[in-house]
């Protein structure tokens, strides 16, 4: 039986879909068989971020309504043999699926895959209920903003009532320079309130916007800092001990100039 992991946040726009795509691609690159489920019915995005939009024939609602077999709706990724996507329907809404149906679907997929990653919609209503219903673990995505942390806290409270292991946290879009100036919540502030295990910190990285628009997960680019963070997270998900990357490692333009001068003085 594989793991069924829901990626959720409460608040919208914090990077659930990006996290799902990158974590899925990293796990696949590490040799695991992975299926991504887009549970955001009516507002599907995961297929776009994965660059698989033009291959969709059947979707999640077709499967639960019996229009097609599950295997027919699964789209194989372009890059990894062992990575699949079950896309959401765009023309339906959240009520098209029930938590029981999602539970059955996840159970069936967990037979064949090592990891089932469920990309949850924002909010705490039925879409969220559907997304978490089949999961046995949860990853919370939060950005270092008070509103995002507040919503994450709410979600963690709701997940306490579910039959799953304690949720783990990914802090997304951290800007080390702003934290240093005291203009952004730092990791300790966030963990102080949420009191959950930290799975990783993803630095704010412009390359994510580029990779998202291109439909290429950032983990495929060796130079992307965010991609590196996601690769580390995937290894932690597999139980490896991976040191947290030093977010100050890359100096700004002035730091680089200073280093250059320092080298010249020697």
């Amino acid at each position: 039986m594989g793991e069924v992991c829901v990626i959720t946040s409460g608040k919208g726009g914090v990077g659930k879909t990006t996290t799902t795509a990158n974590l899925g691609a990293s796990l696949a690159a590490l040799g695991k068989s992975v299926v991504l489920i887009d549970a955001d019915i009516g507002l599907r995005n995961l297929d776009v971020v994965m660059g698989l939009e033009n291959r969709i024939v059947y979707h999640l609602v077709d499967v639960v309504e019996g229009y097609c077999r599950l295997a027919q709706a699964l789209i194989k990724d372009k890059r990894f043999e062992n990575l699949c996507l079950l896309p959401a329907a765009q023309t339906k809404d959240k009520t098209a699926v029930s938590p029981e149906q999602m539970r059955g679907l996840c159970k069936e997929l967990a037979q064949d895959f090592d990891f089932v990653l469920v990309d949850s919609p924002a909010g705490i209503e039925q879409g969220f209920r559907n997304a978490i219903s089949g999961a046995n673990q949860a990853i919370i995505v939060a950005t270092p903003e008070v509103s995002s942390v507040r919503d994450a806290d709410r979600i963690i409270g709701l997940l306490e009532a579910e039959d799953m292991r304690p949720p783990r946290l990914i802090v997304n879009r951290l800007k080390p320079a702003m934290v240093k100036r005291g203009d952004m919540m730092d990791i300790d502030d966030i963990l102080d309130i949420l009191a959950v295990e930290l799975l990783g910190v993803v630095p704010d990285d412009d390359s994510i916007v580029v990779s998202t628009n291109r439909g290429e997960p950032a983990v495929l680019s060796a130079s992307s800092r965010a991609g590196q963070a996601y690769r580390d997270i995937a290894r932690r998900v597999l139980g490896e001990e991976v040191a947290f990357m030093d977010l100050d490692a890359r100096p700004g333009i002035f730091g680089r100039l200073r280093r250059l001068f320092a080298a010249g003085d020697r």
């Binding site: 806290d153 409270g157 309130i193 009191a195």
Partner: peptide, 24 residues
């Protein structure tokens, strides 16, 4: 336990919390 955002405790007596009471 810690009370998280959206959780409420109502009680017709005294309340002692062993944990935090988070915003919300």
């Amino acid at each position: 336990r810690t009370l998280r955002s959206g959780q409420r405790v109502h009680f017709a007596g005294n309340v002692v919390v062993l944990g935090d009471v988070n915003p919300g």
